[in-house]
């Protein structure tokens, strides 16, 4: 295990950024977000970013290809996948787990090469939590916020940053940094995690029962009735991966891009003859069935949620996966 003085954290960032692009969680226009580090940019004091770390692997908007159309002919020039290595510092354990969930979708055959390239170029440096928010429930999904994983795990204690490489990529990053000293981190106090109000959520029930029982639960009607049908929960969610592919006519060609989409939107499944999820109830059910039942069914029981608590904080009407999971298990809303 290596150490670095927290008082000179800026110098550590400068050393990393001297070799490759570095992203850290910082306040930009008052909002904590993963931002490209430049001299003077300080880490946010917020526990986590408002938007999740998925932005760096699956950006909200991304060009896929450009087309030229002339008369009856069409030509394609594909966009280039990212080829520059980068480091993302300060990822919390929940967001780090979300990469596994995104991987299981995007890296499944046939792999998404844009996503894959970013994953291969990235070195993920995680940061252990010591002061969780009340909305945190990663522990009930089997995540240890004090052992966050990634290529390098970091802990902050007193005036020291402790770094532990977990992978070859992590070793290489640490080896490239000057003045790292050896040290052992002190045992962290984990008592606050025992006080978390949502720590005892149990998601195991969802893989134990038939899909149709959950689907036909009477609670959906009531749970979805106040849903506004906005996309806040899906866009701040670190595991939501649905996207749309759209064309933009620039006037001198056509740009095909993909952008985040939300299953909460009325046009998500709209076809020429109509939609198969006509009301908010079906759309709402799709989102939570996907997280709690469909995704685990298709990916070895892996729940599509990491307990980051963003949807608890951001939903305009305070409806969220915790309320849904509890209501489903109780069978009443």
């Amino acid at each position: 295990m290596k150490t670095w003085k927290l008082s000179t954290l800026d110098a550590l960032f400068a050393a990393i950024a001297g070799k490759q692009t570095l992203y850290i969680p910082a306040d930009v226009a008052g909002q904590p977000v993963f931002a490209r580090w430049e001299p003077g940019l300080a880490m946010t004091r917020a526990l986590n970013t408002g938007r999740s770390a998925k932005d760096l692997f699956f950006p909200q908007v991304e060009d896929l290809a450009r087309f030229r159309v002339a008369g009856k002919t069409v030509s394609v020039s594909p966009a280039q996948a990212l080829q520059e290595p980068f480091v993302i510092f300060g990822v919390r354990a929940c967001d780090c787990r979300s990469f596994d969930i995104l991987d299981s979708v995007f890296l499944a055959e046939p792999a998404d090469t844009f996503y894959q390239a970013r994953r291969e170029q990235a070195t993920v440096v995680t940061l252990a939590c010591s002061q969780p928010e009340e909305t945190c429930f990663c522990t009930s999904l089997g995540i240890d916020p004090q052992a966050p994983g990634g290529d390098v795990s970091c802990w902050m204690a007193e005036d020291t940053l402790y770094l532990q490489a977990n992978t070859e990529k992590g070793e290489a990053l640490l080896a490239s940094l000057p003045r790292l000293e050896d040290g052992e981190k002190p045992d962290a106090d984990s008592s606050v995690f025992d006080k978390l109000p949502l720590k005892d959520l149990d998601f195991s029930a969802f893989s134990g029962k038939a899909l149709m029982d959950w689907f036909n639960s009477p609670v959906w009607e009531r749970l979805s009735q106040s849903c506004l049908g906005c996309g806040s929960c899906t866009f701040v969610c670190p595991t939501c991966q649905c996207y749309d592919v759209r064309d933009f006519d620039t006037g001198h060609g056509v740009q095909r891009y993909r952008c985040w989409d939300s299953c909460m939107y009325s046009d998500f499944t709209m076809m020429a003859h109509g939609t198969n999820r006509p009301t908010q109830k079906e759309r709402f059910r799709q989102r939570f069935m996907h997280k709690l039942v469909y995704h685990p069914n298709n990916h070895g029981g892996q729940i599509g949620c990491v307990g980051c608590g963003r949807c608890l904080q951001k939903c305009p009407i305070s409806m969220n996966i915790v309320k849904v999971a509890n209501a489903l298990k109780e069978g009443k809303a």
Binding site: Q31, L228, G229, C230, S232, F235, V236, S266, M270
Partner: peptide, 25 residues
């Protein structure tokens, strides 16, 4: 900072169109 989640539109009591111009393909 906008992520186009449309929460501002969907919550707005004045935004009561059956189909919003921004949802019209």
């Amino acid at each position: 900072k906008c992520i186009r989640c449309n929460a501002c539109r969907n919550v707005c009591p004045a935004c009561s169109c059956e189909k919003c111009v921004f949802d019209n393909p």
